[in-house]
Design a protein around this nucleic acid. Sequence first.
DNA 1: CAGAATCCACCTCGATACTG
DNA 2: CAGTATCGAGGTGGATTCTG
Lengths: 108, 108
Amino acid sequence: MRHKNVEIVAEKCALQEILDVIGGKWAMSIIYALFSGTRRFSELERMIPGINTRMLVKELKNLTQNGIVTRKVYPTVPPTVEYTLTPKGRKLEPSIAELYKWGQEYVK
Amino acid sequence: MRHKNVEIVAEKCALQEILDVIGGKWAMSIIYALFSGTRRFSELERMIPGINTRMLVKELKNLTQNGIVTRKVYPTVPPTVEYTLTPKGRKLEPSIAELYKWGQEYVK
DNA sequence: CAGAATCCACCTCGATACTG
DNA sequence: CAGTATCGAGGTGGATTCTG
């Protein structure tokens, strides 16, 4: 099973972005929550116990900049903002669902 | 596509361990490298450009403690140490392979 | 060869208070 | 409702040097 020639793995650009997207403490929770459909800011806040406003804002901004979610603002009073996964974001579903399964199988 | 009832997602224990395992800057590279089979410390160091000794040691220790890799020491001079994925570690293969594919598809 | 030991510059995250 | 602003503690990762 050992190879004599050691191939170089992990070209950094791809890895960098993957960790940018799912490496944050709350990122996977948010993406996971959005798998079930479009959500408002306050809905996400309630779906993810333990997160606080600052973290949710920050992570959503990051995910938006990375093209994972879109942010739609309705000019109502009080304001309404909805977050939805982009196609790029939805393509994360299989991997993240698998990771969740893994985590549940091996939780101590 | 909107649900009236907001389900709670992301029970924290599972997520916590997933991020513990793959959230580190070099963790995925190491696991990915070990998909191809057992590797020595120095092999891993060469397979993963940009990593340094301290980080490789630290991450391997973490992965060992999390039951992802096993560490086998041969009492030779100079020392030989081999790292291998456990069954638990190998079960990460589908998710991580998917993530890699995703990263390569969406790299800017 | 396979680490251990230091030192340090960030950076991340949490809590809290405030606003259009 | 959906954020912004501020503060501080702790953690993370990088460079480098040393050792059995």
